[in-house]
């Protein structure tokens, strides 16, 4: 069984928000919902030593997802391959998962009354495609793959580069890894 993960190479990300737009358009998200924003740290320092880091965000598809544990209806589901998604038909919009998520990755849809989130484009992944944000990233800053496959680029980067996980101290085991400068 695969264990899907993503690596964000912040050395390559230029903060163009292409991934944000591709996700919004292809997943037909409402205007006020963004699954994968790009945060910016900086610019810091003074010329010529100026530094700026762009941090692409998304659902971390945690190994131990607090959102799934918080859901009283069973609408929040973690698949065996690690993908965390929401079954719309079961969601009552209690926002327990929204409050439980440390990353702000869940979004109430005020029209449907349910909660929406990134699902790693699971339908595309099932067809062997990459998520839209990964396919769109012209800098190759988003790398998607199977963490259990020793030949995958994700496996090599996670085990070969110095990566960090956001808010790792909370113990949720995020499966999105960041290569920082």
């Amino acid at each position: 069984m695969a264990r899907y993960a993503m690596v964000m190479d912040t050395r390559r990300c230029i903060g163009c928000q292409s991934c944000t737009v591709a996700c919004k358009i292809n997943n037909e998200l409402p205007l006020d919902i963004i699954y994968n924003p790009v945060f910016t740290d900086g610019p810091k320092g003074s010329f010529p030593h100026v530094q700026r880091t762009d941090i692409p965000m998304m659902c971390m598809h945690c190994e131990d997802p607090p959102c799934v544990h918080a859901c009283p209806t069973g609408a929040s589901i973690q698949r065996e391959d690690g993908i965390v998604w929401v079954d719309d038909s079961k969601c009552v919009g209690c926002k327990a998962c929204v409050m439980a998520c440390p990353y702000g990755a869940r979004h109430p849809n005020e029209v449907t009354g349910t909660v929406m989130k990134c699902d790693f484009c699971k339908d595309r992944v099932a067809e062997g495609e990459r998520p839209w944000c990964v396919k769109t990233c012209h800098q190759g800053a988003r790398i998607f793959g199977d963490l259990d496959d020793v030949n995958s680029e994700v496996f090599k980067l996670v085990n070969g580069e110095r990566t960090v996980r956001l808010l790792d101290e909370l113990g949720t085991g995020p499966c999105v890894y960041y290569i920082m400068d």
């Binding site: 918080a70 009283p72 069973g74 609408a75 009552v92 327990a96 849809n109």
Partner: peptide, 21 residues
């Protein structure tokens, strides 16, 4: 009433692993 879908409130009884349930 706080729920996004109040008429589906009965579903909160469905997940025995959740504290809210």
């Amino acid at each position: 009433l706080e729920l996004g879908r109040p008429f589906q409130a009965w579903r909160v009884f469905m997940n025995p692993k959740a504290l809210l349930t």
